[in-house]
Computed example of a mutant assay.
Amino acid sequence: MNPLNHVAIIMDGNGRWGLKHKKSRNAGHKAGLNSVEKIIRASIKNNIKYLTLFAFSTENWKRPKKEINYLFNLLEIFLKNKINDLHKKNIKLKIIGIKNFSSKLNKLLIFSENKTKTNKKLQINLALNYGSKSELMNAFKQLQKTKKNLNEKNFIKYLQTRNIPDPDILIRTGNTHRLSNFLLWQIAYAEIFFVKKLWPDFNEKDYNKIIKKFKSIKRNFGNV
């Protein structure tokens, strides 16, 4: 049975769900928060130590300004209402990506990270303004500046996920079969599961089914 330490998720399909059910993309983003809470609870039940959620990519800035503002407002409300609860549950929050938002949101993100930094039950890595290609380029540039040898051990020290184990599983909802510039280095040996359901419809039963399947897979890592 394979040990499971880290799950990464591309939470795709919120906008389509909102248009289908409420005729509003923003309604889908709001509904998606319910799935986030369900998956956090299920991760704790399954003793998973790291959960990485792709919330906003560097490419998402191309979306309509009203939708972007709604997303960030939703995030602010979520953190203000839930950060104390996350802290009480011994959950750590870490932001990966570039904190290039409003000063208000930046302060809230930093506050949330600092408040929960010593927690051990589960670490949630929230990918905000994150793009894997820019992460890799920046890591390479930073390593070059140090004059250290260019090797894998030195390189990963400059990734935004340094000190975080690589994902064992990558899940993408929304019936889309691509990686969308997410953790391209880190998922080299992850088992990838593409799910037809839109993110707001993804539930604990779906999650547990994937976990069960993962644990039964024979993982060779290049061996036989």
Rank of each mutant, 00 (worst) to 15 (best):
G97T: 00
N5V: 07
R25S: 09
I44V: 14
G32V: 03
S180K: 08
N90L: 02
F214Q: 06
K30I: 12
L122E: 04
H87L: 05
I96T: 05
E59K: 13
K94S: 10
T173Q: 10
P200I: 06
K62D: 15
E135V: 02
E113V: 01
N125T: 00
T146H: 10
K49N: 04
K215M: 15
I83M: 13
T161S: 13
I187P: 12
G13H: 10
T176N: 15
K145G: 08
Y158W: 02
L79G: 00
L179V: 11
K89S: 09
I96H: 03
I68C: 06
I169Q: 10
K38E: 13
K65R: 14
E67L: 08
S35P: 03
R172P: 05
R219W: 04
A190V: 07
E37A: 04
K196E: 15
I187W: 13
I110V: 14
S180Y: 10
N114R: 14
I164M: 01
S43N: 01
D85W: 13
N181E: 09
H21N: 15
N84D: 15
K94L: 12
S112Y: 07
I95C: 05
K215L: 06
R219I: 11
E37H: 03
H177V: 03
L75R: 02
A42R: 04
N163A: 08
S112M: 02
L109Q: 04
E37T: 00
L126R: 01
N138H: 11
N119K: 05
I77N: 15
V36A: 10
S35C: 07
E204N: 10
L51R: 03
A127N: 04
Y70K: 04
L33C: 04
N84S: 12
I192Y: 10
M137P: 00
D12V: 07
G97C: 02
G97L: 02
F214I: 12
K82R: 15
V195T: 09
L86N: 01
R162H: 11
S216E: 14
N151A: 07
Y207A: 11
E135G: 05
H6L: 05
I192D: 14
E76Q: 14
N208G: 03
G32C: 10
A139E: 00
M1Q: 13
V7T: 06
E113N: 01
T161M: 14
L86G: 04
G15S: 12
I192Q: 08
S216D: 12
L143D: 08
N69L: 05
E113T: 03
L108S: 06
E37S: 10
N90A: 09
G18V: 01
E191I: 05
